[in-house]
Design a binder for these strands. Structure first.
Lengths: 194, 194
DNA sequence: AAGAAATCTTGATTTACATCAAGAAATTAA
DNA sequence: TTAATTTCTTGATGTAAATCAAGATTTCTT
């Protein structure tokens, strides 16, 4: 475990006070893995075995609708968490696919290690409460934008705050995340208010 | 504090082991309040001061879109939590309105008492982590349904699992929650696949 | 119980965005 | 570099659901 990785982990778990306890056992739980451009990390029907921190690259979680179209649920990239969370926590086959959009390096934590954290280090429950609270609020905000805004408004609002790593991936993923077709996305980009 | 209320609280905080500690101080934190049919509980622009457990009645959280249409984000009813959560936690004016659809009795907990819980009773952090985790998964599932399903599919899926208390409120609220107009909802009810 | 208010229904019309199609541009792989 | 592949653009057309409108029904209020 290199110091750069330890720093990455500490940043990802920002609400934990890492000066308080000895967390060496926690750091040792993580192992590195790599995925190629376009590689599927966790496929539909599998049980998610890992919780990830992204070292490098962009990953996408999508679901297939009944016409076989990919519907992007979310992204992960440098510094953020990744994985298919409900499958991981409930140990049940996933409806989603986690795919590596660009070549990626991830730090992986198994479910067994993840769950052991909360008994081993009491402060992780506090982290979990606050982290999930913020994730929940973020998800509701996205839901509001999907419900209340037009395609054009969703486009403009998203582009105004688009994280740097997402500016490098094919636009079809952003279009899908914004719940519109690549054609619509393309037209909005040219500022043709459709 | 009556024993029926204590039972209600214990059920709402299902993941807490109430046999382990003395929670009398916790029970005493709650106070009862009532709202009339159609009464606004927390209005747009206010800071939410309360976290609620519903004793009786149906409440709705909605946001106004730019045309002034109510967009229903969620419901609460007998036994569930209520309140405008992000405003409560972040102490900032809300974009939403919390309104009492039917005459309601709620048990209220102030933010000060809520936040004191986690230091007073360590097991509440565990509760918070797991409760928020499940809320998050539920919210993502709703998002998926909004994105991947047609109005007809959303209607059928929702009606198949519609909680009893919601069967008594005006259909326009359900329609809005399903992100469709009352007219569309009405047509789907007659099984006219539009 | 009667009147008022809100809600629901049904049909006609509109519209935002999807779909289809095909060529242009960019990116990847050899 | 060049061919192959993927992605992006642009126009023409289609459609699910919204909007508009107005009468019918239900629910509240007194």
């Amino acid at each position: 475990m290199h110091s750069a990785d330890i720093e990455l982990i500490q940043n990802a778990f920002g609400l934990i006070d890492f000066t308080k306890d000895d967390y060496s056992e926690f750091y040792e739980m993580w192992s590195e893995c790599e995925f190629k451009r376009g590689e599927t990390i966790t496929d539909l029907g599998q049980v998610e075995r890992s919780f990830y921190i992204v070292k490098k690259g962009v990953q996408v979680v999508y679901i297939l609708d009944k016409n076989g179209n990919q519907k992007v649920i979310g992204f992960s990239f440098d510094g953020s968490f990744s994985g298919i969370y409900d499958s991981y926590l409930h140990k049940k086959p996933t409806k989603y696919t986690l795919s590596s959009v660009t070549p990626s390096k991830l730090l992986r934590l198994t479910y067994e290690d993840y769950s052991s954290l909360f008994d081993k280090y009491p402060s992780f429950d506090r982290w979990g409460r606050l982290a999930h609270q913020e994730l929940l609020i973020g998800r509701v905000n996205r839901e509001i934008e999907l419900i209340t805004l037009s395609a054009n408004e969703r486009f403009e609002k998203f582009m105004a705050r688009c994280p740097e790593p997402l500016k490098t991936i094919p636009q079809k993923y952003l279009a899908s995340y914004l719940n519109m077709t690549p054609e619509t996305f393309s037209r909005l980009r040219k500022n043709v208010k459709i």
